[in-house]
Amino acid sequence: MKPARKQRLQLVIFIVSVASIGIGLAVYALRDNINLFYTPSQMLAGEAPQNTRIRVGGMVVVDSFVRNEDSLDTAFEVTDGAANIQIQYSGILPDLFAEDEAAVALGYWTSEKIFKAEEVMAKHDEEYTPPEVADAMEKAHQATDKNAPGLH
C-alpha cells in the first residue's frame, strides 16, 4: 500500500472508531437525560414513573395557589381539563406565572400523588401556550367528548 493511502486508511479507521464511541456514549447519555412529558390525567392513571425527572404541564387551577407565609414554598394545582394534580415548588416563580394560565413544571412525581417541582416554566409571552399543554388540553377534551357523547 502506498504510504499516503495507508495513512488515509488509518485516519478513516481513527475517525470511525472515535465517532462510534461517541455515538454509543451519546445514546447512553440521552437515555439518562431526557425528560418525558406527562399530562395530569396520565399521572393520576399511574403512567408516570416515580423518582425519575419528568415534566408535567397544564393550566393553573383558579384559586388553587397557596403560599407559605415565612418561606418561598408554594403549592398550586394544574389541570388538563380532565384531572388535577398538585405541584409543590420552593423558589421564585416566573413573571408570567398566573392562575388560569399555562405552566410546565420539571421535577419528581412522589408516592403521595404530589409533584415536587425543581423548576417551573410559564408561558413566554401573551400569545404563546406551550405546545405540550395545548396538546394535553386537546386530548383531555376529546376523551371527555367520547365518554359523554350526549353532553356535546
Binding site: G22, L25, A26, A29, L30, D32, N33, I34, N35, L36, F37, R53, R55, L106, E132, D135
Partner: peptide
C-alpha cells in the same frame, strides 16, 4: 445536533414529548 433534534424526532415518531436537559450537553 443530536440533543437538539432528538425531541423533534421523538415527537414526530410518537415516542412522547421529551426534552433534553443541560446535563446531557454538559456531559459531552
Amino acid at each position: 445536533l443530536l440533543g437538539t433534534l432528538y425531541p423533534l424526532v421523538a415527537d414526530m415518531a410518537g415516542w412522547g414529548k421529551i426534552s433534553v436537559g443541560p446535563p446531557y450537553f454538559n456531559l459531552f
